[in-house]
Nucleic acid binder design. Sequence first.
DNA 1: TGACACAACTTAACAGTGTTAACTAGGGTG
DNA 2: CACCCTAGTTAACACTGTTAAGTTGTGTCA
Lengths: 196, 196
Amino acid sequence: MTPFIASDARASILEAASAVFAEKGVDGVSMRHIAKEIGVSATALYQHYDSKNALLAAACKAGFAEFGAQLEATARAAASPLDALRGLGGVYVDFALSHPMHYDVMMIRPHQWALGPNPEQDPESFAGLIHVIEACQTAGQLRPGDPREAAHLLWAALHGVVSLAIAMPGEIRGLEAEPVRARANALVEAVIASLL
Amino acid sequence: MTPFIASDARASILEAASAVFAEKGVDGVSMRHIAKEIGVSATALYQHYDSKNALLAAACKAGFAEFGAQLEATARAAASPLDALRGLGGVYVDFALSHPMHYDVMMIRPHQWALGPNPEQDPESFAGLIHVIEACQTAGQLRPGDPREAAHLLWAALHGVVSLAIAMPGEIRGLEAEPVRARANALVEAVIASLL
DNA sequence: TGACACAACTTAACAGTGTTAACTAGGGTG
DNA sequence: CACCCTAGTTAACACTGTTAAGTTGTGTCA
């Protein structure tokens, strides 16, 4: 039987899945829905992905790849390590606001689908962040100390701002880019100041 | 027919629901499961709660009530407004770590169940935080400025630390109270310093 | 006391979910 | 040609939230 799914089956399934859940949210993704989008029966997807979890894990992985590339490019383009650090914050916020659903799966509730601690999902992004911090320290732009701890503080600050913006209801919420970015900046500067 | 559910039906259902999902996580809560816990058919629950969402919303509300009470008590007992602010941070972390599942429903993904922006879930906790910040400002312990913005920064910082601890898989995660509290402290102090 | 209403609860059912099992069509290779 | 493998199919299972209709006990009022 000629395959209905295009040459690279896994990729086109993943694409359809991403499209569906970027539109309807993570909870709106059902195997049958994705399958219908491609024009195929639901069980066909299991030929290419072991489970819905595996499919979402793949979406995470792809998201992290794009995210990591953006981070790396920004870090590389920065004039100084400290500027790189600030740049990473900006990229973080931009990515989260422009891919809120991916951010949801990747960062807000990954445990719902991960089969347990998954090193592939401990993004190299984190390692990259640590590198930049170490560079700041050796350049004397940040005081010496455990870079992992500093990275955690920065990540937590950014994650807090962004995930409140994405996940919270009511007046507290706000998905408009500008104020979120401003808050993230303020927090990052506060953390940097505490690490000078 | 004599009611199987105790005198205060709503309360005992809520209690059973909280017990189930404190143990199995939010995603492990099913109406049938809760009902079996009480010894009743699943549809009986609908006599007392319109939907599963309504039930979880009630759990949120109860959680916020307890949370708010703890916050208020701590604020009241503090020697100075700034100490109160630090105390709130401690209570926030303690609550989240000792009720991670409630924190999940209340803070990490409330939108999954909220019927839309729900003023009842914009906790007075937030208003309380703003009050404390205003007190700091009028006492000269914090520089003047929009207290809402300051509150948002503090909240985001705490939420970031705590939700990473609760939700993230892998080595980054850590639910042991001590390092989480240390990180939260560090972040709170950094934010306070930026608002001095 | 009898009739009625109401509350609490029941079972049966619907539409939807992820997932498995068994089956079918078609192409590539021995 | 026989074979197997790949990609797809339908049917089914066990679950989910939720609705509809029926049952049963209790309290109230004439």
